[in-house]
Structures are given as structure tokens and as C-alpha cells.
Nucleic acid binder design. Structure first.
Lengths: 350, 350
DNA sequence: GCTACTCTCTGAATCGATACAGACTGAATC
DNA sequence: GATTCAGTCTGTATCGATTCAGAGAGTAGC
């Protein structure tokens, strides 16, 4: 009674073998109902809490949990409404499947982060926006399946659920272009992680490290290029983090000069909402678009590109938990939709 | 190369014992640097992903994860902004401690839910609003520590972080009382789970099963009792779920009669916001208070009782991960604050 | 030269279960 | 009466590591 009882203790108490007690728990058909009842009763008496989950996992080779990896700090993930809705979708699918979710915090030090992924007791990973190329490698080495949501050139045969980032972004920019906007600012989180907040020069969109941001910026640029506005003519705004505050801070110095942008294309809704916050203090008539269509976007009248957040999460988890028979079905592309609200208006005539 | 290599495989490849390879990973000081380098190199060659986390956990008796239990569906937790912020706090503390978070979905069937708690591979539990009395029992039987956030009579010696629910609720009600409100409706989620949505008769507040809701309703009633408004004079409104939509739905039939309430005291911000949504369609001047002070409350001008959500989560996790030496320190009561905004006004003279 | 130490490394025990082949029993079949 | 079979239960191998006492080698001190 001193330390926790084990299967063996129950077995000796009842006078049967360990296997039989094990069967009482996970194969009721393998023993008589009477004996099973006696075993369960003895277990109750001994305060035996049931088979040790870790030992079971080791023996069975299955854990019953999937890991979720966020590149940024785990606690930041909860401040990002899109991430939260994605997680809700993952949770829903996991719930239906009777699987737990292991949220693994990744230390900023790459070596430690690697170890964290190696040490996670899971049956697979759901990789949310991992830019770090080592993540797939480490997971593959462990022989575990994983699903990514960010487009990656080297993702190869992996399971993937996402959207056509570039085309979706272009839809937002096309909308602004059709409203007459030509002087446009492109706002993204960590376009260059090393660069300061605010206006930024970049020779080429390929220099953006984060794949999702890169694709969205490229999509924005596509639309503008179609009407003769080149990359060099665009204002790039670097934000430090994906939050309202970061969005507001990024445009603080973005509207100087005699030819300020008439519109801002943001890579996410939270950044766009931050821009709206900041613009509320000014008189300027600036159009703003976001990306994702988070719940607050509607209330703020933000024009944005909607992507199905929960569904993305649900599908990601499903791809992991019930892998499709055909490998081709492992790549899912979701539909996006431009949602036009009041934050975009025709270019004001000055 | 067929199946995943084990520690043993690396050991035989290098020509050393298993123990030495193990030491190479977790006790670098136990072997010479040269040999260690050789072992690590061999591991790389063999594609050995490092010690198996499950086996390690079994041997060490430590998992490196704490479980988070939500009574309602796990996916619902992500739709509740307060729960999300609480989780953010838990995540922050866990992150700092290098511990993972296991989100365990609880099946609605109690027997299966029990099994889910028994099978979770964790070192402790953070129990968010578990009304179910079996939860502490099952966890205790497993010999694991846990922290609760909901007040429970039988919580006994457990670690706990919470607020004085009753006093906090009373502050909101006192405020309304001071504005002259006497005909008041009390709105809560699942005041009686079995009762229909909308107005409800209840002989006594003790009949409310959910402890947090019970305490808040009691606090509301305290303030009104102090000015001579008895329990029987209050309108109780039952909501089905803790969401804006549920809040709006609950008051649909709540304002009939010739003496409709002049104010609504809601047990949560999301319910209160739902009430505001519903009231927006009507002309009535009804004051509304919420509880929690979620992010959207400020924008909506909702008067509410603020409780520190992230801090609650942080402390809950800290209580689990770094248990205080003194047992008395295991019970933490956080401060709350009435935040008066525009949703509460003096009673209109009719 | 001998004792005492420090470094490295090994062997065996152990963590707590599950799986599978087979042993035994009693009943049904021919 | 021998055979077959289903129903129960047991023994043993195994999952993949960690731990700890101790073996052996080299070195320092006296």
C-alpha cells in the first residue's frame, strides 16, 4: 500500500496471473465475467488506478496523442485568433477520435527545440506554420507521420492541408487595384526578422524567409504588377509579431512623404486590425485588407480573405488520424473567399 | 534499417554497452568526450532519433507533461475566450518549465471519461471547471497532483487557484443596485442543465449544480437581498451553453410581462455580450453586466468583473510544476475588480 | 611498491504493462 | 470412447530505455 499498486499486485491479490488481470482491463472477452468482476473489485480495494498509461504505450507502441507544434512561443499561439480556431478544429477531430493533444513548447534555442520534438510522446505531429526546415527531418527520423499547413518546397510526400496562399492574396490585391489603388503598402509579420519595425527595402520577394508570408506578399505583388506597379514601387512594412499592437506599430512611420500609400494589404487580420486602430487616430482615408477572416474582422468591417480555420484544423487532424488510402488525398487545398466589407473604398480624389 | 533503431543498435554498432549510449545522451559527464562523439555520430548514421520518449518515461517515472481537463467538450474550450486566456497562462508557465501540455478530451459518457483520465500520460492535472466530483477521486487514486480552479467543498487539501466568486459577483450586483435597479434578471449557463432555455423557477440557489455558477448567482442575490429584493423576486434565465448565441437566445423570452427587468446580471462576458447583441434589436434601455472581462468586453463597453485570466493559468501551472513548500501556499485567491463601462446606466424613469 | 583515487565503462535489475502460443477443462459430436 | 472444439487461464518474451553498484585502468602521493 505504500507505493502505487501494479497489475502484479492485483494479480497476486486475486491469485491469478498478470495476463489475466491485463485481459480484465483490455480484453473482457478473454475471461469469464465472474473472474473479471472479482479482479475489478480487488483492484478497487487496492486503489489500483488501472494500467499505467506509459507502460501500456511502450508495450503497444501507440501513445494515443498527437503533437501540435507552433513555431513561435506556445503562449503566443493562444493570442492569435486564427491559431486558436485552427486548434479548435484539431481538437474537434481529436475528440471525435478519442485522441489527446500534446502542445509542445519549442525552446528558442534550435538544439533544445530539436530535443523537444524528439522527446514528445506522440503518434504524429500537426505542424502549424513551422518555417524551420529541421522540423520535418526530426519527425521523419522518428518515423512519425505529420501534417503541415505551411507550403514548403521540400515537403515532398508529406500530408498537407492549406490554401493557395498566393492566389488568395492576389484576390485581395486585385480588389484594391479595381478600386483604383496603386500606391500600396504591404504589411507582414517578420518579413525580415532581423530588420527594424516599419518601412523596409527588399530587392526581391524571394528574400522573405517565412514561406506563408512570402507567398502572400508575392500574391499581392502579382496583382499590382498586372497594372504596372512593380515590386520596387511598393512600400513594405515590417511588423514585429502577429498582433494588433504590432500592426499598429508597424505603420507608425509608414505614411510619411508626399505620396503616402492609399491602401495597406496586410498578411493577417490581426495586423490589419492594428492598422485600423492606428488609422482611427488620423484623418487619412486609407483602405485596409486583412487575411484569415477572424471573428473580430466582421465587427471591424475589415475586408479580408476568408479561409476556413476550424476546417483546416479538422482536416489536419483527420489526415493524421485517419490517413487516406490514396496518397494523393493527403494533399488538401481549401477554398478561400474574398469578403468585401467597409475597410476598402475607392481611392479618394485629392 | 527495416524498423526503427534502438539504443541497443547504436551500442552494438559502436561496440559499447547500452548503458554507455544511454549516458551519451543524458549524462555526458559519465563518459569521455571522444567516445561520446563517436556514439552520436553512429546514431546519426543509423538514423537513430534519440531515446524513445515512452520508454524513458516508464523508466524515469516522469512524463514531462501536465494534463488539462475541461468538463465541456475540448473543442468548446477554444470558443470560450476566458478559457483560451487561461490556457495561454498555463502554456506560458509550462513553456518556461519545459513541460508539455496534454489536452485530454473527455467523452460525455462518464465511464469513458474516467478511463480517459486514467489513461492520460501526465505528471499532474490542471482541472478547469470540473464539476464532476469523480475527477479529483480518479486523479488522487493515480497518485498525481492536481490544481482546481472551481471552488469545491470537498476539494480538501488540493491545490487551488481562484477568486472569491461570490464577493466578486456581489460587486457587480451592488453596482447595479446603486444605479437603482431592483427588477433584475440573473443569467447563467446551465443553471439547471435539464431545464429549457429562458426563464426558470428555482426555489433556492443551492439547487444550482455548477459550483461557479451557483456562487456567482448567490453573490448577485446577496446584493439584491441587501435592498430587500428576495430570491423569489428575481428572474432567472437559463442559457444552453456559454456563448454569445446562447446568451442572446436565453433572453428572447425574458422580457415579457408588464414589469420587465431593467437589468441583466450575466455569469460570464460572452453571455452578456449575447444579451447586448439581442438588445441591439430592441428599444429597451436595459443595463447589462458580465463577468471575466474578456478582450471583446472593452470594445462592447460592457461593465464587468475583471479576473486575471492568464495569471490564473500561470499560477495553476506553477502550483503544479513548482509546488510551494508550505501547503497553505497551495491555495491562491486572486483579486477581482469591477470595471464600469457604458453597458450599465441608472434605471430609466418610465 | 602499495594504497587511494579518479575516470570510464559494463552488467544486471528494473520500470509496468501486453501479446501470443499453448495448457487445461468440460462439453459436444460422431 | 475417441475427437474436436470452445472457453479460460498461464508463462514467457518483449517493448526501449535508465540506474547503480562495481570492474578495470591509469595516476598521484607517500
Amino acid at each position: 500500500m505504500k507505493s502505487k499498486p501494479t497489475l502484479q499486485d492485483v494479480a497476486t491479490a486475486v491469485g491469478v496471473s498478470r495476463s489475466t488481470v491485463s485481459n480484465a482491463y483490455c480484453r473482457p472477452d478473454q475471461l469469464s465475467a465472474g473472474l473479471r468482476a472479482r479482479i475489478l473489485e480487488a483492484a478497487r480495494q487496492l486503489d489500483y488506478p488501472g494500467p499505467n498509461p506509459t507502460a501500456r504505450s511502450l508495450r503497444r507502441g501507440v501513445v494515443g496523442a498527437i503533437g501540435v507544434l507552433f513555431t513561435s512561443q506556445l503562449s503566443y499561439a493562444f493570442t492569435d485568433p486564427f491559431a486558436v480556431r485552427f486548434l479548435a478544429g484539431v481538437a474537434e477531430a481529436a475528440e471525435r477520435h478519442g485522441t489527446s493533444l500534446l502542445l509542445v513548447p519549442l525552446p528558442t534555442d534550435p538544439t533544445q527545440a530539436r530535443v523537444a520534438v524528439e522527446n514528445a510522446a506522440v503518434d504524429g505531429f500537426c505542424v502549424y506554420c513551422a518555417d524551420d526546415s529541421w522540423v520535418p527531418d526530426v519527425i521523419r527520423r522518428r518515423g512519425l507521420p505529420f501534417v503541415t499547413t505551411a507550403p514548403r518546397a521540400d515537403a515532398g510526400a508529406d500530408r498537407y492541408v492549406g490554401i493557395d496562399e498566393r492566389a488568395a492574396a492576389r484576390a485581395a490585391a486585385d480588389h484594391l487595384v479595381s478600386l483604383g489603388h496603386r500606391r500600396v503598402a504591404l504589411l507582414g509579420d517578420s518579413i525580415r526578422p532581423d530588420a527594424p519595425v516599419g518601412p523596409l527595402r527588399l530587392s526581391c520577394v524571394d528574400d522573405v524567409p517565412h514561406p506563408t508570408t512570402r507567398q502572400r506578399l508575392a500574391g499581392f505583388a502579382d496583382a499590382l504588377a498586372a497594372v504596372g506597379v512593380g515590386w520596387a514601387d511598393l512600400t513594405l512594412l515590417n511588423a514585429a509579431g502577429n498582433s494588433r499592437a504590432a500592426g499598429a506599430a508597424a505603420i507608425a512611420d509608414g505614411f510619411v512623404g508626399d505620396q503616402p500609400p492609399t491602401a495597406v494589404l496586410a498578411c493577417s487580420d490581426v495586423l490589419a486590425l492594428g492598422v485600423l486602430d492606428a488609422l482611427a487616430d488620423r484623418a487619412a482615408d486609407v483602405s485596409v485588407t486583412g487575411f484569415d477572416d477572424v471573428p473580430d474582422a466582421a465587427a471591424a468591417g475589415l475586408t479580408t480573405v476568408r479561409q476556413p480555420a476550424e476546417e483546416k484544423g479538422r482536416i489536419a487532424a483527420a489526415l493524421l488520424l485517419d490517413p487516406p488510402a490514396e496518397p494523393a488525398a493527403g494533399h488538401v487545398l481549401l477554398r478561400t473567399e474574398l469578403v468585401v466589407r467597409t475597410s476598402t473604398r475607392p481611392v479618394p480624389r485629392s
